[in-house]
């Protein structure tokens, strides 16, 4: 398992495509908490996959004014199709070129397989990582850790 960045570390900035013609910069979200959810791939073949779950939990994240970003190495068109199919209401970022560069910055890339870990980061409004967690790749980590971390953020 990779060594994901630990709490207290400044969150490395990045700019990635959120849609084929729009990019999103982490820096642009300063002032509110950000949840980064790295995951291995779109289209996992179960109903309750991680992104579908977070989609349902979104109102609870929003109570903390937090922005959720899903990140995988899938490309923009793949994300667009997946997002439409699962009716996702939050951005999926394409860590596609150079592949996995952002996952690597966060210590959340699986070298042999070329995909991101199931790694979660909660970043505070000033851009510092306050909580991180890397789940075994086959285990959907759920949302409880994220909510607890958001609750524990300094006001």
């Amino acid at each position: 398992m990779s060594n994901v960045l630990l709490p207290g570390t400044p969150a490395p900035d990045f700019t990635l495509h959120a849609t084929p013609d729009q990019t999103l910069a982490l820096k642009g979200l300063r002032g509110r908490p950000v949840i980064l959810a790295f995951y291995p791939a779109d289209w996992s073949p179960v109903c309750g996959d991680q992104m579908a779950l977070y989609n349902e939990v979104l109102p609870e994240f929003q109570r903390f004014n937090a922005e959720l970003l899903g990140i995988s190495v899938d490309g923009v068109w793949c994300h667009a199709a997946f997002s439409r199919d699962r009716k996702l209401h939050f951005p999926l970022l394409a860590d596609f070129e150079p592949k996995g560069a952002v996952a690597k910055l966060y210590g959340a890339f699986r070298d042999g397989e070329g995909i991101a870990e199931r790694a979660l980061f909660v970043i505070d409004k000033n851009g510092t990582i306050r909580w991180s967690y890397c789940s075994p790749i086959a285990v959907n980590p759920g949302a409880d850790g994220i909510l607890e971390a958001l609750e524990n953020l300094p006001k």
Partner: peptide, 24 residues
């Protein structure tokens, strides 16, 4: 029910708990 489940680490459906521990 849903919110309690989220807090307990429900990560999809179905999620089972046996004597309070999530069955993975």
């Amino acid at each position: 029910d849903f919110s309690g489940g989220v807090r307990s680490g429900v990560n999809g459906t179905p999620t089972f708990f046996v004597n309070g521990m999530r069955h993975d």
